[in-house]
Computed example of a mutant assay.
Amino acid sequence: MKSITISDVAAHAEVSKSTVSQFLNKRYDYMGEKTKQRIEMAIDTLGYQPNIVARSLKQKSTKTIGVIVANILHNFSTEVSRAIEDVCNHSGFHMIICNADDDPVKEKHYIEILLAKQVDGLIIFPTGNNRDLYQKMLDNQYPLVFLDRSVEGIPISAIMLENEKASRLAVEHLVQKDYKRIGMLTTSIIHNISPRLERVSGYKKALHDYGLPMRDDYVNSVESSSVQDSLEEMLGLSEPPEAIVAGNDLVLIEILKFVKRHHLRLPEDLAVIGIDDVSFASFFTPPITTVAQPTFKMGKMAAEVLMDKINQKRIEDERLDYRFEPTLMVRDSVDNKDVT
């Protein structure tokens, strides 16, 4: 079957090739309505499909960005990706999402694949362990934005939560409800993932500021698969924590599984606050108090900063960190503790 070309469209619509090209690139400010209608009809009648590869070579742009998330199972990853897609769609871009599973090897592999596909820019939830590759892209002035995390010593724009404040909000709420033995569980910090480190730091600072003891056996950072075992150890102590702060949504899910499996009552047997406002938090029984991130605003900002870099409207050192405020969502998994 003969491939339909832009020349065929131009001949059918009785216009020049350059006019069709302007139409395809949405540059029709001075194009009459009847001309646009003729071109549209010609495209529809002939079944013309633009050659994306040829256009990319000519424009030196694929109109595509790559997004490498740390873990697609995170509620945060899903919501920010949705916001990024909104900005891409509005800007005439497409996006490719890759899941690195917090694995530096997978992350490096996906970065190299996306660069080979000549995507115009990248949004990465960095593992932190590909410093040479990050620096190489930075040195080459390649459009790059970090999301959720920063990497020490790599001056790349990062869109992040005020993570220490998120933990502080959780601890403050528990203190106001008369809880004194407060623990925290988060996913592994072995790779120095910045939001996890900051949330643990915020938790410790809040305990210190409120004059509460910081016990090493009340705080732990483990893989998601070990959260329930870690919680069992904590609750098996002679003086177990009365409340637990879950460092992210995956930890919260594991804690709630443990609660159900052991027939614990929230908040009577254990008070729980999760950082990340997961979709089920409001209709779980009882509804779970959380500290919410403005996920859509963060995703939108990440995409807009990247688009500015792609369009050379923003220089790298103009601003590095974009921090967003957390919000405490008060529900029923924390209540006033009876003073005995």
Rank of each mutant, 00 (worst) to 15 (best):
H262C: 10
Y110I: 02
T290D: 05
C98K: 03
V251S: 05
Y218E: 04
T340F: 10
S3N: 14
L174T: 08
H262W: 11
S56D: 09
I6T: 06
N75E: 12
A83F: 07
I189N: 12
F23W: 13
A83W: 03
A243I: 07
N192E: 15
A303N: 04
I182F: 06
E33K: 14
G236L: 01
F146W: 08
Q176H: 13
D332P: 01
I310S: 05
F283A: 01
P326M: 11
R131I: 09
A292Q: 15
I156C: 08
A302M: 01
S157Q: 03
V53C: 01
K165E: 14
E79A: 03
T64A: 11
D269E: 08
R261H: 08
H90G: 00
L231I: 03
R196H: 14
T340G: 12
Y218W: 13
V53I: 14
A42T: 07
V245W: 02
E242V: 03
L185Y: 08
L169C: 09
Y28P: 00
E232T: 12
K60I: 02
Y110G: 01
T327K: 14
L161F: 09
D132I: 04
G47T: 03
V272E: 07
K180W: 00
P241A: 10
E85L: 03
L197W: 04
I123G: 00
M41D: 15
Y30R: 14
D269S: 10
P240V: 06
L328P: 06
L212C: 08
L138T: 07
M301G: 02
S81Q: 02
T64C: 14
Q293E: 14
E254F: 04
A116F: 08
K17A: 06
I275D: 04
M329E: 14
E233I: 12
M214S: 10
D249N: 13
H94T: 11
P241M: 07
F93T: 03
M41T: 15
K2M: 05
H74V: 00
M329R: 13
L174Y: 05
E107T: 03
G153A: 10
L138G: 00
E233V: 14
K136C: 02
A206C: 15
A271F: 09
R215N: 14
K337P: 03
D178P: 00
S167P: 00
I84Q: 00
S81R: 00
M41P: 00
D103Y: 11
L169K: 05
D216R: 06
M234T: 05
K177L: 15
R131P: 00
I72E: 13
Q59R: 12
E198L: 11
L46K: 11
K204W: 09
A158K: 01
F93K: 10
E79H: 09
A100P: 02
V9N: 02
E152T: 13
A206W: 09
H208N: 10
L133P: 01
D335Y: 08
E79Y: 05
Q135H: 11
F76P: 02
E79V: 06
S238D: 15
V9I: 06
S21C: 09
S16T: 15
H263T: 13
F324G: 07
Y134H: 03
E242W: 04
D217R: 09
T290E: 10
V80E: 06
Q59K: 12
L306S: 01
D8F: 08
A246N: 09
I189T: 15
A83P: 01
K136T: 13
H12Q: 15
A83S: 12
P213D: 10
P326V: 10
L235G: 03
L24S: 05
M137K: 07
A170G: 08
